[in-house]
Design a protein around this nucleic acid. Structure first.
Lengths: 129, 129
DNA sequence: CCTTGACCTTCCCGTGACTGGAACCCTCAT
DNA sequence: ATGAGGGTTCCAGTCACGGGAAGGTCAAGG
């Protein structure tokens, strides 16, 4: 399979697939003309990567998870640890965003949104006393 | 005031303050020795920026908001629009993160986390049928 | 046979909002 | 005179790609 087909199959942009090869996540073969030739194995890895990225894992996490995936002697505790660390970061982000949403929501509610200049949003940002 | 004092007062790193000058958000004076000299006005702007950034507004949003802040003839509707657009993006992000958290949470719960290799997390990433 | 168009290749730059570090200047106290 | 603790500029790196240029390859149609 050429990169275009793989892109279609995996849903990943060709650019991303090349990038993943660049950073050593996959190692497709090459045809005589220089084109990348992807085997089932590579496609499987790319799907793995796509799903892991969709769950928000960093590329480095993906590297670790792939290594564990391919290591038959892994301990599931190692996988779980990576996942839990990531989950904690997600929860921190959610908390931050919720705080922003609440503050912003209150300010927006308090703003008339008409053609007059008075605006509680700007007052707040300006450090209303 | 020199940059160090301003950094302390505003809670922004000196690097960030220089960056904000670079991109034209503030325009502090200069002393004869080349040091930046910050007036009350500049400190006020930096506090504004700090609060806007803490609410997650992009730098470009901050630029817009600052312009509105300084425009006595603004319409609060313009401010509200910027805020609402941003709020919508925050809510999208929250929804995405919540979905990740849920999926990841279930997978983590299902994972034994012991020294055996069986792992529902990897099974899922691997595309368990 | 030639051309067209759809592929593919590498390479380099840009993103957002900084952060780190090098190399150097200024000022004040010891 | 020297050292500490400010300040300055500029360059590079972050993260995970995306855009676009310049060029090679391939199958089909005229």
């Amino acid at each position: 399979m050429n990169i275009g087909d793989v892109a279609t199959q995996t849903g990943l942009p060709a650019k991303t697939i090349r990038y993943y090869e660049d950073i050593g996540l996959i190692k497709p073969m090459r045809d005589d003309n220089g084109y990348r030739r992807f085997r089932e194995q590579d496609v499987h890895k790319l799907n793995f990567l796509g799903r892991a990225r969709a769950l928000g894992f960093t590329i480095e996490d993906c590297r670790t998870l792939m290594a564990l995936y391919e290591d038959e002697t892994r301990a599931s505790a190692d996988v779980k640890k990576v996942a839990r660390t990531h989950l904690a970061q997600i929860e921190t982000k959610i908390a931050d965003l919720n705080a922003m949403r609440d503050t912003l929501g209150h300010l927006i509610d308090a703003c008339a949104g008409d053609d007059r200049p008075d605006c509680p949003i700007l007052q707040d940002l300006g450090g209303k006393p």
